[in-house]
Design a protein around this nucleic acid. Structure first.
Lengths: 110, 110
DNA sequence: GATATTTATCGTAATATTGCGATAATATTT
DNA sequence: AAATATTATCGCAATATTACGATAAATATC
């Protein structure tokens, strides 16, 4: 069907998958790396750094904004995109918790 | 086009996005949580735990195997799926490095 | 106010993902 | 060998994603 039954999974699993989805394309990873390294900020410069058209970059920025990882502020004719530090930390923790989660009871196999 | 220009991005960014893609669906997160918590192992039990059909779960398992995060060993009529601990650690580190990456030179804005 | 600059959005096309039922493939049990 | 159990794969349909050019929208500059 193509529609994902996300309602049927736990809040925790949805949180992890939502963050992961934002990071699931190399362009978005690259954008976040640029923004987080504080090398740039303005959309136009991001476009210069990536092998994608302006409209495509703009679309990725929109998705990242929707995921909550970045904010965009209009500054004159430009838009300044920045990491939302709180959400960045939260995302980091969601993934970290996921990877750290262990259990006492071990199953026999493996 | 729907085709992603991943070749044009860095190895690092592709590594992160590949792991993230594996985690980008709550069902796969749930499966990995089950396997990593060592509560189960066999495909059939995973099917019982998820609100998805057997064929759909099998497909998610295939994707996770392709991502390298899990291994599957045939045991009689069953298949025993397990976390690949080395790749699990590697994936964790890729994401952690990504989230930790900082820079000295700060830009003016934000 | 006309022009240039910058970014967002629209429309479109190609491909990918998600999901399921049906069926095949494999191994065990009777 | 027939029946059963378990998992993988195929075929299909619905939806999502990725990408780009064209164009609109907003602001700055001349």
């Amino acid at each position: 069907m193509g529609i994902s039954k996300s309602e049927e999974f736990s809040v925790k699993d949805n949180r992890v998958s939502k963050v992961a989805k934002a990071l699931s394309h190399p362009a978005r990873v690259a954008i976040l790396r640029l923004l987080h390294s504080k090398k740039t900020c303005v959309c136009g410069f991001i476009v210069d750094e990536l092998p994608l058209s302006q409209s495509t970059v703009s679309q990725h920025l929109k998705e990242l904004k929707a995921s909550g990882l970045i904010k965009g502020e209009i500054e004159g004719p430009r838009t300044c995109y920045c990491i939302d530090e709180k959400d960045w930390e939260a995302a980091k923790n969601y993934l970290n918790d996921f990877f750290e989660a262990k259990s006492e009871n071990t199953k026999g196999c493996c």
